[in-house]
């Protein structure tokens, strides 16, 4: 397994890393000459990124080789869930006092991402091997996190901006669910636009990261394309599930059972 995924830290790879870093010098020089002021930020970010990736690759190497990899996968995935829920909740902010974002983001992201991942595992598209489960979980949770943030931000903003309209509809006997349906649709559609646009331009404007990585690792283009499409379907399905669940939780928090808006 170790050989097949080519994770060995050899001299050849380190030389390539040093050579690739020559582009970093270009960034620093351009920043200095044009007085853009990003040289310091870039340097610290690059160093931090380097250390984080080295740490991650060391961890993954250990996990991938372990007989009890799932014993590591569970805490790693749990950490992903918690970080994704927290990050999305921070993005949504505390602008709406009645809604505690983390109570919405964490379960929505978890349910949405796990739904898609487990579907692909059950259907046999994703092998139950750490090389697949861990990085794909990262992709699913990461994308669900972004979609969750976009959905909640837009939905809460639509509801706040249309509060009078919602109350006028409630006063005419509309249910809470009915009054926010159109804003829910707008928010979900809006949150999925970037991902669907990426799918639409797949292979024409850009070759996505996962497929690029597989091609560079010597996987056949057809196999890489099939995996890439599977990844996209996973991302979009986990996104839409996350989005639907998150907006449902929002409704539960901002309306009472008597269809009263308490935002």
């Amino acid at each position: 397994m170790f050989d097949s995924i080519n994770l060995s830290l050899n001299v050849d790879i380190m030389v390539k890393l040093v050579l690739a870093s020559s582009l970093a010098i270009v960034i620093v020089v351009v920043s200095y000459l044009k007085e853009i002021g990003v040289a310091r930020d870039f340097s610290s970010a690059a160093l931090r990124g380097f250390l984080q990736l080295m740490l991650l690759s060391a961890l993954l190497t250990y996990v991938f080789l372990s007989e009890i990899w799932y014993g590591f996968a569970v805490p790693i995935i749990t950490l992903m869930i918690l970080l994704a829920g927290y990050t999305s909740a921070r993005r949504v902010g505390a602008g709406v006092a009645v809604v505690k974002p983390i109570v919405i983001t964490t379960p929505s992201i978890t349910a949405g991402a796990l739904f898609s991942l487990s579907t692909l595992v059950v259907l046999g598209v994703i092998p139950t091997e750490p090389e697949f489960i861990i990085p794909l979980s990262g992709m699913a949770f990461g994308n669900s996190m972004n979609i969750c943030s976009l959905t909640l931000t837009r939905l809460l903003s639509e509801i706040k901006n249309n509060k009078d309209k919602i109350e006028a509809k409630l006063a005419l006997g509309a249910t809470s669910d009915f009054t926010v349906r159109e804003y829910e649709r707008i928010a979900i559609r809006w949150s999925l636009i970037p991902t669907i646009d990426n799918l639409r331009t797949l292979g024409v404007i850009f070759i996505p990261g996962a497929m690029t990585g597989m091609l560079m690792a010597g996987i056949s283009p057809v196999t890489a394309a099939v995996y890439q499409l599977s990844i996209f379907f996973m991302i979009i399905s986990s996104g839409i599930m996350t989005s639907v669940i998150a907006s449902h939780f929002v409704k539960l928090r901002i309306f009472t059972q008597a269809h009263q808006l308490i935002l």
Partner: peptide, 30 residues
């Protein structure tokens, strides 16, 4: 049932809020 109550007890607000659509659709909303 709050939904039924609000049909029996109509409320007209200080500033009228118009919904999307034409006048006929607004009137027939309920």
């Amino acid at each position: 049932n709050p939904v039924e109550l609000r049909k029996i007890v109509g409320l007209v607000f200080q500033t009228p809020v118009m919904f999307e659509g034409n006048v006929g659709e607004n009137i027939s909303y309920g």
